[in-house]
Simulated assay, not measured.
Amino acid sequence: MSATTLEDPLSSHHPAAVLFDMDGTLVDSEKLWDVALQELAREYGGDLSADARRAIIGTAMAESMRILHDDLGQPERDPDVSAAWINARILELFRTGLRWRPGAFDLLRAVRAAGIPTALVTSSPRALVEIALDTLVRDNFDVVVAGDEVVAAKPHPEPYLTAARLLGVPIERCVAIEDSPTGVASARASGAAVVAVPAEVPLPSLTGVHQVESLTGVDLELLAALAADRAGASG
């Protein structure tokens, strides 16, 4: 069901749109990334450190490969070659099935039932997103912004600004839902209200970011309140 066929959310108490990150927010895919990254590190004769793995979370592929190479003491390696290896392996792992994060499915279903536009805003490349959408269901999103479809990736605000532009809604009336420091920085810089649900990496307390332990306790009332507060602050 298309959200655009229902009541215009700008005339209601709902957010103008809800913008969802994917990895670690909607689906528990970071563990699959762990497998692929560690396998590549071993292929190169090393082990990826815990600090480097944490730094990679939420970043675009090019930056992820730079971090991995530097951590292994092999900065001369071609990031495109490494990215191609990771993409091929992670596609295999994604096809084995993705698990929803706690509360994510119910929240997405509630947002769609309310007629609120939705976007998937992820650092993952489009080819990988297409596999993930078999679990997430592509009709659950009016817009998808993949990591290889923007000029500036997270933590730059462009991915979230692009989603709002494609949906035709003001970003300050949107709520973004993220799990990583990189993603939170992107959403916060865009001007959206932000719900942060840490997965693999603890998040600091930040002004304008509503942090929760899981999405189980997030409902439409909370999203509406956060969007209203953000819109008021920007107005």
Rank of each mutant, 00 (worst) to 15 (best):
R89V: 08
V194T: 04
S180K: 10
T122L: 05
A119Q: 01
S124D: 07
S29M: 05
A233D: 00
L136Q: 00
A83G: 07
V129W: 01
A231P: 08
G208S: 00
L48Y: 14
H13P: 01
R42K: 15
A152Q: 08
E39I: 11
E63A: 12
A153Q: 14
F105C: 02
L167S: 09
E200L: 08
D21K: 04
P9I: 02
E30T: 06
T162V: 08
G147M: 13
A104F: 02
M22R: 14
G97P: 10
S123P: 09
E76W: 13
V201L: 12
Q74F: 04
G235A: 11
V218A: 03
S29R: 00
A185F: 01
E92C: 04
E39Y: 10
A163H: 03
T135W: 00
S214P: 12
I171H: 05
R112S: 02
R230H: 01
V81K: 01
A88T: 11
V212Q: 14
P79V: 14
L48V: 13
A227I: 03
P181M: 00
V150A: 10
A152L: 11
S190E: 05
A224L: 01
W33I: 05
R53K: 12
L206E: 14
G103M: 03
V145N: 05
D179K: 10
P125E: 04
S186V: 11
A3N: 13
I171V: 14
D139M: 03
T4F: 09
G183W: 07
G191S: 00
A83T: 10
P159H: 01
A60D: 13
A164S: 15
A55V: 10
L136E: 01
D71C: 07
R126Y: 01
S82Q: 10
L26H: 07
E39G: 08
V145K: 05
R165S: 11
T118I: 00
V209A: 05
R99C: 03
D47K: 06
L107K: 09
R173N: 03
R112D: 00
S214E: 12
R138H: 07
L222C: 08
R101D: 04
A41I: 15
G208T: 00
G24M: 05
V27E: 04
G115V: 11
A164L: 15
Y44N: 11
V150C: 11
L120I: 07
I171S: 03
E221V: 13
G191V: 04
H156Q: 07
A227P: 09
D70R: 11
I56H: 03
L220Y: 12
L108F: 06
I86S: 02
V201I: 15
R89I: 06
D134N: 00
D106P: 07
T162C: 08
D70W: 04
D142G: 15
V129E: 05
L6V: 12
D179L: 09
M1D: 10
S190P: 11
L93K: 06
L128D: 12
A50Q: 14
T59K: 10
G45L: 03
